Amino acid sequence: MRVIGIETSCDETGVAIYDEEKGLLSHVLYSQAKLHSQYGGVVPELASRDHIKKIIPSIKQALLEAQLTKKDINAIAYTAGPGLAGALLVGATIGHSIAYAWNIPALPIHHMEGHLLSPMLEDIRPSFPFIALLASGGHTMIVAVKSVGRYKILGESLDDAAGEAFDKTAKLLGLDYPGGPLLFHLAKKGNPGRFKFPRPMTNQPGLDMSFSGLKTFAANTIRSHRNDSQTRADIAYAFQEAICDTLLIKCERALQQTGMKSIAIAGGVSANKQLRKSFDKLTKKIGAKVYYPRTEFCTDNGAMIAYAGMQKLKNNETSNNLSIQTIPRWPIDQIKLIQENSIN
């Protein structure tokens, strides 16, 4: 069986084809970062329009790279939420239309479930159950993963997501959008120890997190010091260390509380090399194992949606319902919300 995955939740147009036996056959990704950089962030209307331009050519390219035709495809999986309402509608509409024309099922996929399962695209993958840290521009949460489709949120950010805090602080430092990767490179030039940022909520019980205060702390630090290149690098270093330490402390606590020995790190922030280095060191110390997707699958992509779609198809979670449903705000522990209305 083969599934086409379509991802249009925000500012990346992703299309991929996943084969049940051979794995990933093709992977096409178009980033809108350059389009939105002049505005300092994603403009929803522009994102939707660009998805409309890129989605059909991307599907054709994915089929061409995989050397397949429509007759070789068994289902279309698309991101149904969470995400930008207009952007989601592009992928959902195209996905349903193609599925109807080709007489195959359309599979609505939870965007964060796609990220959560993205380490499964690798040869070395976690076994159920495991803990997952999902850290991106829009979400930061720690999830207990019992099996595909069975997730429990253990903790989440009460305000800004970690990736959002990275981007906003990068902007305060005068960096372009998207700022997270640029802040990482700036931090490599920073001096350890010059600035000490707080680790929010780490002295409190529980696994919830908060990152908006770190952004404010960074803004105050920037305003109160000379605006030279070394100071900016030192602030970037301290800020990155604070984010990484906070995530590390909370995840170590989650492993201790659940007794699990495996953790998967996914989402855009999981590409941060300092974060990976910290988790490698922690898991080695406590006798646990950590898993990551390759860097190209940390950001939004069609491969993770195609993989998640294959799992739904194998479990016969298919639909002949022609109604197009998207949920811009959709907690991962309510993943059955859309399926109850669409699955036979």
Rank of each mutant, 00 (worst) to 15 (best):
113 E>Y: 07
172 L>P: 00
71 K>P: 00
320 N>A: 08
70 K>L: 13
27 H>L: 03
183 L>R: 02
89 L>H: 11
214 L>P: 01
283 T>Q: 05
100 Y>G: 00
220 N>L: 14
119 P>H: 10
75 A>N: 07
203 N>I: 08
41 G>V: 03
274 Q>R: 14
51 H>N: 12
278 S>V: 07
109 I>P: 07
99 A>I: 03
49 R>W: 06
117 L>P: 10
218 A>C: 11
273 K>S: 15
253 R>I: 09
15 V>G: 13
107 L>V: 15
74 N>Q: 11
38 Q>F: 00
76 I>F: 11
287 G>A: 00
75 A>I: 08
79 T>M: 13
140 T>Y: 01
311 Q>N: 14
76 I>E: 06
137 G>V: 09
263 I>P: 06
47 A>K: 05
182 L>W: 02
193 G>L: 09
36 H>D: 06
226 R>Y: 00
335 I>Q: 00
267 G>K: 05
3 V>G: 09
254 A>T: 06
291 Y>H: 07
192 P>Q: 05
287 G>T: 06
139 H>Q: 14
295 T>G: 01
68 L>W: 08
25 L>E: 08
201 M>K: 09
260 M>I: 15
238 A>M: 07
63 L>P: 08
175 L>W: 08
245 D>P: 00
8 T>G: 12
60 K>M: 14
312 K>G: 04
223 R>M: 02
275 L>N: 03
218 A>S: 13
247 L>M: 09
221 T>I: 03
185 H>C: 00
56 I>F: 13
203 N>V: 09
286 I>E: 06
199 R>D: 02
146 K>V: 01
52 I>V: 15
314 K>W: 06
25 L>F: 09
67 Q>K: 14
231 T>R: 00
210 S>I: 04
117 L>W: 06
2 R>A: 02
24 L>I: 15
177 Y>W: 13
320 N>F: 11
8 T>I: 14
156 E>V: 03
294 R>G: 11
40 G>V: 05
306 A>Q: 05
21 E>H: 14
226 R>A: 11
208 D>R: 10
122 E>H: 07
165 A>Q: 06
64 L>G: 07
18 Y>N: 08
230 Q>I: 03
53 K>M: 07
6 I>V: 14
257 Q>A: 12
303 A>M: 07
248 L>D: 00
204 Q>F: 03
206 G>F: 04
235 I>P: 01
25 L>C: 12
256 Q>A: 04
17 I>R: 04
316 N>D: 02
152 K>H: 15
256 Q>Y: 01
100 Y>L: 10
85 A>C: 03
326 T>V: 15
266 A>P: 08
85 A>S: 14
53 K>V: 11
305 I>A: 11
53 K>W: 06
232 R>M: 04
122 E>D: 13
192 P>Y: 02
132 A>D: 11
193 G>E: 05
155 G>A: 01
280 D>L: 12
41 G>S: 01
115 H>V: 04
49 R>N: 07
10 C>Y: 07
31 S>N: 10
179 G>K: 00
132 A>H: 11
328 P>M: 10
141 M>V: 13
322 L>S: 13
294 R>C: 13
113 E>A: 10
44 P>T: 06
213 G>I: 07
95 G>T: 10
74 N>M: 08
86 G>Y: 02
91 G>I: 04
79 T>W: 09
337 L>A: 05
111 H>I: 10
188 K>I: 12
185 H>R: 13
291 Y>I: 06
220 N>T: 11
334 Q>M: 14
